[in-house]
Each structure stands twice: as C-alpha cells, then as structure tokens.
C-alpha cells in the first residue's frame, strides 16, 4: 500500500474506543485519523505519545507506533524519541491536567527548546478520568467534587502560557469544528519545531457545555474571533466588532467606531510574541469573545537539528569515535 492510498480505517485499531458516549474526544480522534490518512506519511513513521487522562487513551486507537506513558510526562518521552529519530513524525496527546498541572514543567521546556513534536492539548477544563475535580483551566469559583465551596485557583490560559514560553507555533481550535481543526493540524505538521494546539473539548459528563458560547448556534458567531494571517481581526455575524491594539493591550471595539486603519492586522509570523500574547489576553476562557486559529508561527532552529549538527560537526572534526584511543586519552604507561 502506498501512503496515498490510506483511508481513515488504516489508522484505526481493533481496540474498542472507550470514551463516554458524546465525548468530544471522538470528534478529535476522527479529525486526526482523517488528517493522517491524507498526510502522505507512512504509518510506521508516526508516533503518538500520551500521558494520563481521558485523552491519553488516544494512542490505543491510532494504528501507528505509540505509547500511553505516565501522568504529565508525555513531552519528556517524546523528547527522547524526537531527538534521536528525526525521521519520525511525533505527536503528543495531553489534557489540561496532564499538560498544565502535573506536567507543566515538561510542557514549557519542550516549547522553549523548540522540540519538533506537536502537542495536542485537549482542554475540557475538568478532570474527567478521576471523575470531576477542577483543573488548572477551570474558572475561579468553580464548584466541583473537590471544591464544594468553589475553586480558589486562578486558571491558566494555555495559549498565553505557551507564548510566554516562546513556543514557535501556538494555536487554538474546537473539537466540534473538524474543518478548523484539520487546518490547524496541517499547519502544525508543516511547521518545523514545537507546536502547541489547544483544543477546546467538551466533557459532556463532568463539564458539559463549557464551550457553548463558542459552539451554540445563537452565540458562536458573536464570540468566535477567527485569526487569519494578514487579515484585520474582525468578528461577529457581520464583522461588526474588531480588535485594536492600544498601548500594547488588545481591545475589542465596534468596527464602525474606529478608523479601519486602526484595526489590528494579524501577523502570526511576528518574531516578537508580545502582540500574539496581547491577543491571547482577550479572553480568560471560552466565556465570551475568544480568539481561535494560529496565534504564532515563527521559524527558529529545532532542538533536534542543533543536536544533530553538533554530532555531525564533532564527527567531522574528530573522525568517528575510536574506543581504543578514548580509553588511552588520559595518558598511559606500560608494565
């Protein structure tokens, strides 16, 4: 079979998918399988690594190489694969608890290193597998099993966090919007270096309708701020609202109330992450107008290429390693 003959079925395993009926994970799985079938990359060259959580079951349903590792550590495991095997396409599947709580350290460090794997962060703003505790993206005051009087925690904005870590590719999409998701996946694959894709994913059991402002028929057009590179940032059913930059802060205004020249033109390729960060601060969560799309896409050498270059340069300079010479390198004497 050539890679162009793939269909979604080639990426499905014989394992029964065991997420709750109605879970947003099903949609994302379908999007990813379809996307990979059309990618033209041989199945054996794809590796999917996950941590722990509902989303972390993902590798079992992908007929590629994969590992369901331990809580929060998927980026660490992926690092070892990606650094030593640049021939592979490595994907990390993680959740808001996995990536931002127990695994926060690995997330920021893999992003700053520009490791060439793609991180799909399924954000449902709740702990699902452990049955309903608040997560690091849950809104402050949220009442859950572990916070009957409301969560005292201020939440992370994953996009802001990734931009703060100077990730070279940062995007946000929605589980229900398969076309949008696929577009982001394609762009992330094309990108050389780390990619963080936050996927708003509905947990219909423990946190249903968390994203209703962005998915509901009556509200979505009012709240989805679609970022399109090179286009002025306008949204609303008639484009009646717009985003401007005022003293470094992004603000939402009525389009009619400002000079069209003041409307922010989105530039994902801006080396300085400040504007992308300002855009990410337009929302603290999916509760009102929220930017979706690619916030940042800039070029920087990947960690893998730098490491490979060092090995190549050392080998060219010193020749292939000679063990007999190495163990004599500290001086010897004969008896």
């Amino acid at each position: 079979m050539t890679t162009t003959d793939y269909t979604r079925a080639d990426f499905q395993t014989d394992q029964e998918v065991r997420w709750c009926p109605g879970c947003g994970d099903y949609t994302v799985l379908a999007s990813v399988q379809n996307f990979m079938a059309g990618l033209g990359v041989p199945r054996e060259k794809i590796v999917v690594i996950s941590g722990i959580g509902c989303a972390a079951r993902f590798p079992y349903y992908m007929n590629t190489y994969g590992m369901h590792s331990i809580h929060g550590r998927a980026p660490a495991v992926a690092s070892g694969i990606s650094i030593t095997r640049p021939d592979l396409s490595v994907w990390v599947v993680t959740g808001d608890g996995d990536a931002l709580s127990i695994g926060g350290n690995h997330l920021i460090h893999s992003l700053r290193r520009n490791l060439n794997f793609k991180i799909l962060l399924f954000n449902n703003q709740i702990y699902g597998l452990t049955k309903g505790q608040y997560s690091p993206t849950s809104e402050q005051g949220k009442q859950t099993k572990s916070t009957p009087f409301g969560s005292p925690d201020h939440p992370f904005n994953p996009v802001s966090l990734a931009l703060g870590a100077e990730a070279t590719f940062v995007a946000r999409t929605l589980d229900m919007d398969r076309k949008h998701t696929t577009g982001i996946l394609e762009a992330a694959y094309e990108h050389q270096g780390s990619a963080l894709i936050e996927i708003y994913q509905n947990c219909n059991v423990f946190n249903d309708k968390a994203f209703i402002e962005l998915t509901g028929k009556d509200t979505r057009d009012h709240n989805r701020i679609n970022l399109v590179d090179g286009e002025p940032v306008k949204f609303g059913p008639e484009g009646e609202r717009a985003v401007i930059l005022e003293e470094g802060t992004a603000k939402i205004v009525d389009t009619s109330a400002v000079d069209p020249g003041r409307i922010l033109v989105h530039d994902a390729g801006n080396d300085d992450p400040s504007v992308a960060f300002a855009i990410s601060r337009l929302s603290h969560g999916p509760y009102g107008p929220t930017p979706l799309g690619i916030f940042r896409r800039v070029s920087r050498p990947t960690y893998e290429s730098t490491v490979r270059d060092q090995i190549t340069a050392a080998t060219e300079a010193k020749g292939e390693g000679d063990l007999a010479a190495l163990i004599r390198s500290h001086g010897t004497w004969d008896v």
């Binding site: 590992m67 660490a76 992926a78 650094i83």
Partner: peptide, 9 residues
C-alpha cells in the same frame, strides 16, 4: 522519560 522514549526509538 526521555530515556524511555529513546529506548522505544
């Protein structure tokens, strides 16, 4: 973790 990944690879 990285070593586990490297072993798998």
């Amino acid at each position: 973790g990285s070593a586990i990944g490297a072993a798998f690879a």
